[in-house]
Design a protein around this nucleic acid. Structure first.
Lengths: 157, 157
DNA sequence: CTTAATGCAAAGGCTTTGCATAGTT
DNA sequence: AACTATGCAAAGCCTTTGCATTAAG
């Protein structure tokens, strides 16, 4: 029963969805809320298990999957074989950002610089898409791919 | 030796990179060039193997990976456990597009409607990011996530 | 000729599933 | 009490790796 009271924003969503509020789910949400990183399921599991040793890896996977489907969490694949998870709206936490990904070394840069200009643009597009395709859009992702300075120096390709 | 003469655009890039032009690579590029779908490695393999039975799955994976690192192909993860590949620039082929993804049923909609407006915006951002982070940007991806009309009707979440 | 590319088989690693148990509502 | 959520172990499945062979430049 960790974090009860705080973070009620998602508890309401759980109830509306008929999903039970359980200790493992609270722990996972807390962890995602407090981190600045792009965490893999295993990363979350390690922290969760440290907090509450009775939490298993399977539950972490299942929780992350549920949260992704609910639109509370966003799942990313940066190309290194394991999925990464981030809270979509992190009140008081990490700022909304987009990604710059090096295709060679898989380095990820989070940028927030031009987000403000992007927001207006994105929202306009979102409204149009939502209407045209009868889609309820809850989130978006923008990524740029290329080579970082370090990898550009190196030979090949 | 399929497709020699045509599609010389990538052959030059191979030579500059010191990569050999081989039959399997030509076949894979041809397949990607001719399709309208988001193909998995297995999908590509099936077609490639049908054209040239001596082509193995491993080579398809290795080729796709190389093309991705070269920026010729873009690798996507739509959340169903297998990676998808698309040619980045497909002269005379499929138009550049972005994705609308249903988090429930994993349906993917390719949209091209508002691309033109996006292009100008994206290029501006790209120039700024490229400069600030000393990154050579070769491509981008924009995706919107949510629920399609069909899944919205269904209960849960 | 030299070195990269390929294929097959096997290994690897992340993620999912079956089933009995514990926990919520 | 009724039914969802969890955990463990095992299975699944996509992807990668080792190594001998073949082919490109």
């Amino acid at each position: 029963m960790r974090g009860r009271g705080r973070g009620a924003w998602w508890q309401e969503r759980f109830q509306n969805a008929g999903a039970r509020i359980t200790a493992p789910r609270e722990v996972v949400l807390d962890i995602l809320h407090e981190t600045e990183e792009h965490m893999s399921a295993a990363d979350v599991y390690v922290k969760a298990h440290a907090i509450n040793p009775s939490i298993g890896l399977t539950t972490v996977y299942r929780t992350l999957d549920m949260l992704t489907q609910m639109g509370i969490v966003q799942k990313f694949d940066f190309g290194d074989g394991k999925a990464r998870f981030e809270l979509v709206n992190n009140p008081g936490g990490k700022k909304h950002h987009h990604h710059l990904i090096c295709l060679k070394c898989k380095a990820i840069i989070d940028y927030t610089e031009f987000i403000d200009e992007e927001v207006e643009f994105i929202e306009k597009t979102q409204r149009k898409l939502s209407k045209k395709y009868d889609f309820t859009i809850t989130d978006h992702a923008i990524s740029f791919f290329g080579q970082c300075a370090k990898c550009r120096e190196g030979v090949s390709f």
